[in-house]
Amino acid sequence: MNAPLLSVRDLKVHFPIRVGGVLQGRYKQLKAVDGVSFDLMPGETLGIVGESGCGKSTMGRAVLQLIKPTQGQVIWLGQDLAKLGAKQMRAKRQDMQIIFQDPLACLNPRITVGDIIAEPLRTFHPDMTSAEAKSRVQKLMQQVGLHPNMINRYPHEFSGGQCQRIGIARAMIVEPRLIVCDEPVSALDVSIQAQIINLLRDLQQRFQLSLIFISHDLSVVRHISHRIMVVYLGKVMEVADRDALYTHPRHPYTKALISAVPLPDPDQERAKQRIVLSGDLPSPLNPPPGCVFASRCPIRTELCATTPPVLEERSTDHHAACHHSE
């Protein structure tokens, strides 16, 4: 197999959070991402699934250095991004782009769609003539399913799905090799979701893009990803091929997640045995000392409360972090 496009090693993002009163306040570390490692091949889609507050969005931003990682390496084609200066990093951004969850909020409401899409061009190709930039913008608008004569309109004149297409066009215009998709369809209507998912797949195949697809929706992630990483409280619980993860989940959290997804099929939905987890996500400021999932785990033992499990390969390309998984 060829070399990975991106290698993330032991990535940690900790935020200092002030706790306590005005006088006795002190800082505690909020471990949003705590020791995550993965490789991403060219043309591959890695799905990152987890519930809100598990650090999956922070992880995506740390990979792009939009949030400075506290520790760890983000190796892009053999070069550690975390060590680059601001200027060098800015030049690298041509290769890696991001798509956001809220399609309208990620577009500056005061400038036209044409200017929004052309913005990366202006920064990376300042010598490009405006006519050339315009023709490239219009060509791309066509490719993402927007009518090119909308180029002078403003974001608020578009629907959510169209805004997401604009966001995708902005990310695509500099022909990046990696796009981090942060919940790109969760704010969209059902009938629009499928359109955007198809568009992303289509663009990926056409341009050999690598995608990091962050979502809380397991169905969407399964549909679009090649490999899926399940994250809980800043740590990786399980990584596996999409089908293996669904058919043979090894981690109790993955099992619970899969069983909790409501299926649009009344008979199956009513027949299935749901693993209902008790309680809520523990506060990331006070994570459990052992396995972070221990407080809600149906198969926990005393070992889990004291010793954090290690992410280990259980079968070919199937890793899980659990003391008790087969």
């Binding site: 399964r222 999409r242 997804v261 099929d265």
Partner: peptide, 25 residues
């Protein structure tokens, strides 16, 4: 019918293009 077909299914293992309803509401 269109809506139901356009849903990505957790229990489906084909990863073909989803059938979609074109256009906007």
């Amino acid at each position: 019918r269109g809506l139901l077909q356009s849903l990505p299914r957790l229990d489906a293992d084909d990863h073909q293009e989803l059938p979609t309803i074109p256009g906007q509401p």
